[in-house]
Simulated scan of single mutants.
Amino acid sequence: MRWAYAYLALLLVVAVLAPWLATNSESAPIPFRAETTALTGPRYAPPGTLAPDGRRHYLGTDRLGRDTAAGLVAGTRVAVLVGAGSLVLALLIGVPLGAVAGFFGDGGMHLPRAGLIALMLGALVGSAYFWGSLVGLAEGPVHWLTFWVCSVGVVAAVSWLLLRAVGRWVTSLRKPVGVPVDRLVVLLIELVSSIPGLVILIAVLSLVRVPSLWLVVLIIGLIGWTSIARFLRAELLRIRELPYIAAARITGVGEWRLLWRHALPNAVGPLVVVAAFFVGSSILAEAMLSFLGVGVPADQVTWGSMLQQSRARPEAWWLAVFPGLLLTLTVLACNRLRREG
């Protein structure tokens, strides 16, 4: 069945066209904005109710008089943003770690001692510089992460250049050292996976003074990369033993080129399956947080926040049926892609 592809494509189109689909204009398909409140207008109005100015609420209103149809469009945009944004971040972390761990194992990667020392110095000195000088300038988690990565990267690069220059006269710095990269990556995966993701989300978001949707995307991506890395590692453990990899290695193809040009492309197909499941889980996690009132700004209309309002007013069935139906179809569509993959 191809309904899953059509449904997800429709969600993407609605998310892109959301500013034009729901706006305070009589010519718009939905003549209301999701954030527009009408405390003097119909609240908890059933579908089809007319507003005082003659515009119709096709799917009813919530407790603040906001249009339900406009809220569904805004929630669709939030769902697509959370699913796509967290997936990109998880792929940026999980693909390199999983690919290197699965292809090289514990003895296949060798780095010069100068490089290892530079990485350790970069992590130590860069983190110390960040905590001592830059942490006060960070306005949020995104700035915090950016400043820390830049600090570690700059110190590691400078250390590597200096050690490489010194290594011309010190022979021991040029000797390669085997890196147990597979063991390190598996240890990191187990460390991140040992704490339930929902607990981390609620704990971190409860400490934030100003809720932000981007923070939700960041945290979901940072804790969700483990499934991608674990799957890709297992897939490359199988691919690296295939005959064509051994034949390419005999012809003199470099290990890194062999990984990125020959082994990794054959793992992209199965990786799409895991990515589809991750998108559905991310959207469900965001809806759960919105339902609990954690992490998402109070004025942000999402599917989860609409479901939370239906809990306070059970007779307003439209606030539960319509967002619940969209959430269910979205997760089922992602799982359908997983089964077809």
Results as ranks from 00 to 15, higher is better:
55 R>I: 08
135 V>S: 15
19 P>V: 00
134 L>I: 06
326 L>K: 10
144 W>S: 14
319 L>Y: 11
302 T>S: 13
114 A>N: 13
215 L>A: 15
191 L>I: 05
97 L>G: 06
177 V>F: 05
151 S>F: 10
46 P>A: 04
93 I>T: 03
189 I>C: 04
337 L>D: 05
207 L>C: 05
178 G>K: 13
15 A>W: 06
337 L>M: 11
59 L>T: 02
50 L>Q: 15
81 L>S: 10
140 G>S: 04
8 L>I: 12
289 L>W: 09
136 G>E: 09
142 V>P: 00
284 L>Q: 08
276 A>K: 08
32 F>H: 01
51 A>L: 11
204 V>H: 02
9 A>I: 11
150 C>M: 15
217 V>M: 04
158 V>P: 02
189 I>T: 04
278 F>A: 11
204 V>D: 01
211 P>A: 11
312 A>P: 03
154 V>P: 02
284 L>M: 13
103 F>N: 01
29 P>C: 06
222 L>T: 15
296 V>Y: 10
107 G>F: 15
134 L>R: 12
294 V>S: 02
133 S>P: 03
172 S>K: 10
219 I>V: 12
41 G>S: 08
184 L>V: 10
82 V>K: 00
208 V>D: 07
282 S>T: 07
332 L>Q: 10
267 A>W: 09
194 S>G: 12
253 V>P: 07
223 I>W: 11
332 L>C: 09
190 E>T: 13
140 G>C: 05
218 L>M: 03
290 S>C: 06
72 L>M: 06
105 G>H: 03
91 L>D: 00
165 A>N: 12
138 A>P: 07
62 D>N: 03
110 H>T: 15
80 V>E: 01
